[in-house]
């Protein structure tokens, strides 16, 4: 089996999709000749030609809106927004059009498109290149929001997103694009888009996260393990629709839960999970739910960004508070 990084797995999945389904079109800024600024689309132009792998002019609204049109015609557009910081102008197209084309036409027209974008901080990138605003998308009815946290999940989830009959926002954690290598079987197997993954089983506390924070979260779980605490780690993977059963079952077992995300605290997606725990899991909880998140500030420029990102130490502190609660 070939080894791949997360960005390499994205590339493999895109190639696979283009190979198996000639309705698939890959488009975006600098994605063809240049192979994408992160090389996620490297080599696709050479393999699949310039009718299916399109370098677009500069214009995110058009990239999203044209994808809606292509999708309505039965094509399977997979559009790249170069960084999440430049995705905001597409929200009009997503909220007003992509997400409700099916509803508005009672299923006569549909929108099987994927909008991919790298996101998150920690790359020492310029302004506007480090935001984590996944919760904004999770708020939109009618779409799916998917965040892979490992190469093999990226491969399987992206294939599922492309094959899905509805719009999917696929957010790729840029900070771990190249930090993990895994064997990824390029066999075209998709993963389900409505289940959380459990990269680590445990019985004393549940740590819930997604995207790049999986790194610090797993490290914290490891550190807790060394202290004799058995931590279970849940990677949400698909924020919308949310598989709450897996999270509830885990908390039923552990009674304690820490939610970790890089995005700002207020109305972060952790709030949704915490609210559902309050609704459906209150009686299983032995301690208040803890959240470890970015601050409610503008994402700082590189010299301070490591102060913004939740650290392993902050996760550990929250876990200890939850464990100590009696």
């Amino acid at each position: 089996m070939p080894e791949a990084t997360l960005v390499g797995a994205v590339n493999m999945a895109l190639a696979r999709a283009l190979e198996e389904d000639d309705r698939v079109i890959v488009l975006g800024e600098d994605i063809a000749v240049n192979g994408g600024v992160f090389r996620a689309t490297d080599g696709l132009l050479e393999r699949f030609g310039d009718e299916r792998v399109l370098d677009t002019p500069l214009g995110e609204v058009a990239i999203a809106g044209i994808s809606v049109g292509m999708a309505a015609q039965g094509l399977r557009p997979v559009a790249e927004i170069q960084f999440m910081g430049f995705i905001y102008s597409t929200i009009d197209q997503i909220v007003n059009h992509a997400s409700r084309l099916r509803t508005r036409t009672r299923g006569r027209l549909t929108c099987p498109m994927v909008l991919r974008a790298p996101f998150g901080g920690g790359l020492h990138a310029p302004e506007h290149h480090s935001d984590s605003t996944e919760a904004m998308f999770a708020h939109i009815p009618g779409i799916r929001v998917v965040v892979p946290s490992s190469p093999s999940w990226a491969y399987g989830l992206l294939l599922a997103a492309i094959r899905d009959p509805d719009p999917v926002i696929f957010l790729e954690p840029a900070r771990i694009y190249r930090t993990i290598k895994q064997e990824v079987a390029d066999e075209g197997a998709a993963l389900p888009l409505d289940v959380c993954f459990k990269p680590r089983e445990g019985s004393d506390i549940t740590l819930v996260t997604w995207g790049a924070m999986i790194k610090e979260t797993l490290a914290a779980a490891e550190a807790l393990g060394a202290e004799g605490v058995s931590a279970e780690v849940i990677d949400v993977a698909t924020l919308k629709p949310l598989d709450m059963e897996t999270i509830l079952a885990s908390v039923e077992k552990t009674g304690r839960c820490v939610i970790i995300h890089e995005a700002a605290y207020t109305a972060g997606f952790g709030a949704e999970i915490a609210a559902r725990l309050a609704e459906k899991g209150l009686l299983s909880l032995l301690a208040p739910v803890e959240r470890v998140t970015g601050y409610d500030t503008v994402m700082p420029l590189p010299r301070l960004e490591h102060r913004y990102m939740p650290s392993e130490a902050r996760i550990l502190a929250a876990a200890r508070r939850a464990l100590a609660f009696a």
């Binding site: 500030t297 700082p300 010299r303 301070l304 102060r307």
Partner: peptide, 23 residues
Amino acid sequence: AQPPQAMFDCLYAELPKALAEQR
């Protein structure tokens, strides 16, 4: 480098009370 609390210091004309704990 600026101290970490500088993240909060030019966010609003005056920092809302609700953010004091985060700062």
